[in-house]
Amino acid sequence: MILIPPVVILDRSQMAENIGAVARVMANFGLDRLRLVTPRDGWPQERAWATASGADWVLDGATVFDSVAAATADLNTVFATTARPRETRQPVRTPREASRVLYDDTASGLKVGLLFGGERAGLETADIALCQGIVTIPIDPRHQSLNLAQAVAINAYEWRTLVLDAPPPNFREGDPPAPGELAVGMYEHLERELDAAGFFHPPEKTRSMSQNLRVMLGRAAFTEQEVATFRGVIHALSRGRGRVLERLARQAADKT
């Protein structure tokens, strides 16, 4: 069985040296697919190769995206690595537990990834809401500072250990979750119609309400068919609302 390792996604990385250090530990543990979301100083950056200690193939193959949604669009399962679960109600796992889930999903033919935030601010809640769970490293609360490469190394080590131990995979039953691109399309479709119906009130809470909806729907892990069905439901409801408005308009015109 050939297992494709998780994609490593770095969101808004600030320093080229840190990207190079991440490439180095990825190569140490057999990971080679690196995606960068709007690195602060652009890409490519020569300093990254200087600190990668020869892991050039990881950096040579790195791809750049303008958003986390775009970077995860083709992936079925993505875990956000953060020390703070924030206000999202998602499953929280250790790197070891998360590696087991990613291993099983990969063995079932799914595309998986690990998302890491920038050095200073970490991940935005809106981006965490696009993921299927949270990975938190159980470090000592007296000193919770880990640099980016260390966080990647711990998760990569757990993946590598699991692969080398070669446990029998728990194959996923039924159809796989839809890739991120289809899920985001469903979220945006629902949010447009809810906005038109006046659901987001007061307006200043629109963002947090949208994130909560995405987390709730994300936990359901819709298949492609279920996404299509749910979007059909949204369309039917919006079309029905339009018919009601047309009827009310006709009634008002008749009265005049």
Rank of each mutant, 00 (worst) to 15 (best):
I2E: 10
I2W: 09
I2H: 10
L3I: 15
I4Y: 09
I4K: 11
L10T: 00
R12N: 14
E17I: 12
N18I: 12
N18H: 09
I19A: 08
A23Q: 05
R24P: 06
M26T: 05
R33M: 03
L34D: 02
R35D: 02
L36M: 07
T38D: 11
R40E: 05
G42E: 04
G42M: 12
G42I: 12
Q45S: 14
E46T: 14
A48I: 09
A48Y: 00
A48P: 03
W49T: 06
A52V: 06
A52C: 13
D56Y: 07
D56M: 00
D60T: 10
D60N: 15
G61C: 06
T72I: 14
N76L: 04
N76S: 12
F79T: 03
A80S: 08
T81G: 06
R86H: 13
T88H: 04
T88I: 13
P91K: 01
P95S: 07
S99T: 05
D104R: 01
A107L: 02
L110K: 12
K111A: 14
V112Y: 01
L115Y: 00
F116N: 07
E119D: 09
R120C: 05
A121S: 15
G122F: 02
L123H: 10
E124M: 12
A129M: 03
A129Q: 06
C131Y: 03
V135I: 13
V135L: 10
T136N: 11
P138F: 14
I139N: 01
P141T: 06
P141S: 09
Q144M: 15
S145K: 12
L148D: 13
A156N: 08
T161V: 15
T161C: 09
D165F: 04
A166S: 14
P167W: 09
P167G: 08
N170I: 05
M186E: 03
E188P: 04
E188H: 07
E188K: 00
L190W: 02
E191R: 00
T206S: 03
G218H: 03
A221T: 04
T223N: 01
T223Q: 04
T223F: 07
T223Y: 09
E226K: 13
A228R: 15
R231Y: 02
G232R: 02
I234T: 11
L237Y: 02
L245H: 12
L248C: 08
R250Y: 10
A252C: 11
A253G: 03
A253S: 10
D254F: 11
D254N: 04
T256P: 07
